[in-house]
Amino acid sequence: MEKSRLMESKKCFCDTGLWFENCCGLYLQNNQKAPSALALMRSRYSAYAAHNADYLMETTYISERKYYSKAEILKWATANKWQKLEILSSTETTVEFKAYFLDANNKSQTHYEFSTFKFENNAWFYVDGKFE
C-alpha cells in the first residue's frame, strides 16, 4: 500500500507531465482499459518503471504470451532505472518510440522499438515490436 501511495503522488513515468494517478495509473491500478495503442504503449512503459510484470503479461496479445516470461520481464524491469520515454511516431495500430534507461552498471542505454498493437474484445494489446 505504501508503494502505491508514493506512486500516486508523482508525475507519470511516461512523460506526459500528468500525475501518475491521472495517467497510466488509471490502467495499472484502476483496471481501466487503455483507449488507444499509444495509451497502452505509454502504460506499458510505466509498467516497466513500476515493475508491474502482471500488467505487461496481461496486455500482451494472447497468442504472443508464450514467448514471454513474467520472471524475465520483472528481472529486466528491476535491473534498469527508467529515465524517459520519447514517442517518435504513432498510428492507430503502431507506436515508434525510444525508452531511455540506466542499466545495472549505471550506463545510459536507449531501447528503440516500432511496436504493433491489436484491438480485440474491447481492449488494446501489444503484439510485437521491431528493434534496432
Rank of each mutant, 00 (worst) to 15 (best):
W82N: 10
W76Y: 12
Y61W: 13
R65C: 09
N80W: 07
T91S: 15
E2R: 10
Y126I: 03
I62K: 11
K98Y: 04
Y45E: 09
W82P: 13
G17I: 04
Y126C: 00
S108L: 13
V95F: 02
K70T: 08
I73H: 02
T94H: 14
C14V: 07
A79W: 01
N52T: 03
K84Q: 13
G25P: 05
L85Q: 05
S36E: 06
Y48G: 05
Y45M: 05
E58V: 03
L56D: 09
L102M: 08
E21G: 00
T16M: 10
N105A: 15
R65T: 13
R44W: 08
L6K: 11
D103K: 00
D128I: 02
V95H: 04
Y27M: 02
M7C: 06
E21H: 10
K33D: 08
D128M: 05
V95A: 06
L38I: 14
K70Q: 14
H111C: 01
E120W: 03
E96M: 02
E64K: 15
M41N: 05
S115N: 07
I73C: 05
Y112K: 03
A123T: 11
D54R: 15
S36T: 13
E86P: 07
E113V: 04
E21V: 15
Y45F: 14
F20Y: 15
M41L: 05
L88E: 09
K84D: 12
A71N: 11
V95W: 04
G129H: 05
N105R: 11
N122S: 14
D103M: 01
M41V: 05
R5C: 03
Y112V: 01
D54K: 15
R42D: 02
E92S: 12
H51Y: 15
F131V: 13
R44T: 09
F125K: 02
K84L: 03
F13S: 12
K118F: 06
F13P: 09
F20C: 03
I73L: 14
L85N: 08
Y48Q: 06
K98E: 13
K98W: 00
S69K: 00
F125M: 03
R44Y: 10
T59E: 07
K33R: 08
M57C: 07
V127S: 04
E120R: 00
K98F: 01
N106G: 04
L18T: 01
Q32K: 15
E96D: 14
A53E: 14
Y61Q: 10
K3P: 01
A39T: 06
K75N: 14
L56V: 12
K81A: 11
S43Q: 03
E132K: 12
Q32G: 01
L56F: 11
F20G: 04
T110P: 04
G17R: 03
S36P: 06
A49M: 05
T93Y: 07
T110F: 00
T94L: 00
Y61P: 02
Q109K: 15
K81E: 14
T16C: 10
N121C: 07
G17C: 02
M57I: 15
K3I: 11
P35Y: 07
F125C: 06
K10P: 06
